[in-house]
Amino acid sequence: MLSRGMQALTGDSRDEDCWTRFISARDVVGIKVNCSGAPHVMSSVELVASIVKNLIAIGVPSDHIWIYERFEDQLLSVGYDKCVPQGVHIWAAEGKRRTSLLGYDPYTYVEVDFFGEEDTRSFMTRPVTETFTKIINVPKMKEHQAAGVTGCLKNIAYGNFSNMDRSHRFAKTNTYSFIGTLAAVQPIPSRTVLNIMDGLSAVWHAGPFSEFPQFRFYPKQICCGTDPVAMDHLLIDLIEAKRKSEGAPSLFDRSQKHLGPDNSNPQFNHFIREPGHVEYASQLGLGIYDSDRIKLETIEL
């Protein structure tokens, strides 16, 4: 599946040729996984292991490959280490108690005051600025209670900065502009050369976590691309269609009547979702939102 996707994306017939379009043997590669829905819905071990295998095949040393995430407890619960060669780093920015900035670069941050909070900085993860020369973004296809969806943009934005949950403290969140703002901070956009979105399984409500089995579904697809905005637009369409088929309100619904504490009921949500963050990101130059300008090739296997 990954091989066919990469071949379609690049036009090359050999896997090595596909991967060397993005990565060289001298690169230090960060693979940004998404584990907030672990252990049920996360960047799958099989997909991540396949990416690592392809990197090693083109000459990237195993110790130049980092599988990383913000929170250690979520990352370690998946068990990537069991399926990748020795030497591959499994790294998290914060431990279980989430009380340290050591995993973040003190010189690279976004400073903003949303609601009078005292801690107004969000620092970028340290390896992104100090170690990686390339990043492969491997998000999961999920609805997000605050952002609407959590795909390429949110995984590379919120997944690379500290002190993020403050952006969605209240029902009206700040995710609309914050996700794109963070995703546009260098070196993230220049080093993120490839997005491989995992839709083998997915979440259509109460994301990004996956505590309710009834909200999991299985698109059985992966999406390879270079444009995080275009890919997230496709994700919106996919989640929106699933929600419609389940009789749930649209991601774009902003009605107060659908706000409520019980999000085990798909009619209710804790927040007003902001799927418009994807189109907003296009205005920051992060990609193309216009469906007519997105080049999409679908391969059935």
């Binding site: 005051d113 801690d119 107004t120 900085r121 620092f123």
Partner: peptide, 21 residues
């Protein structure tokens, strides 16, 4: 207190703490 902080401005605060509350 929020008004005091706004009037002072964060830039003029002698000290700031980031990463813990």
């Amino acid at each position: 207190v929020h008004r005091i902080r706004t009037n002072l401005t964060d830039d003029k605060r002698r000290i700031r703490v980031f990463g813990t509350s």
